[in-house]
Amino acid sequence: MKMFGKNSISKLLYYVTMAVVIGYGVFIGFVAFALITNRFELTDDNRFKIKILFVDSYVMGALDGKTIVVLLLFLAYYLLYFLLLLRILKAFKSDALFTNSIIKRLDWFTYFNLLFPVATFIGVLIMGDGKLNDEVVYGMFHILIAIFSGFISAIFKQGFQLQQENDLTI
């Protein structure tokens, strides 16, 4: 099977990511709608509990402004994250690979990954408990992806230079 262009694996990855973006968007809309219209259960310790449709799972948190804002920002971050990934895959499914636009998209993806540890740190400060547990692991994971994405971007810059040299020679 082809890797780029029409009927390629890149195109398949693009549509899978698009499905994730749509599903995730619907999920965020559902959570936001439930919070705005007070359609949630309230537990004894004053926590909201939103049942996720079709799944035996819940979104839970303390019922205060800070928690709700941080939760919605967290969900919005991953929506944007997958949108950026979608833009990269969109560029991959085209025949022209080494272009300036894909380098920019990869750079944006790199910066966005680096934003996670910073945003998490600020989020933990706002939330006030000052404890970093799982966040450290996720932060490291995002830093790793950021550096890898930066590495791929640098490789694409080399490819872009080669492409330009080639085009000029022809």
Binding site: L97, F98, F156, G159
Partner: peptide, 14 residues
């Protein structure tokens, strides 16, 4: 695998 193909394309260009 997609990245491997990108590298292959770049190698051909080079």
């Amino acid at each position: 695998y997609v990245l491997a193909s990108i590298f292959k394309r770049a190698k051909e260009l080079k």
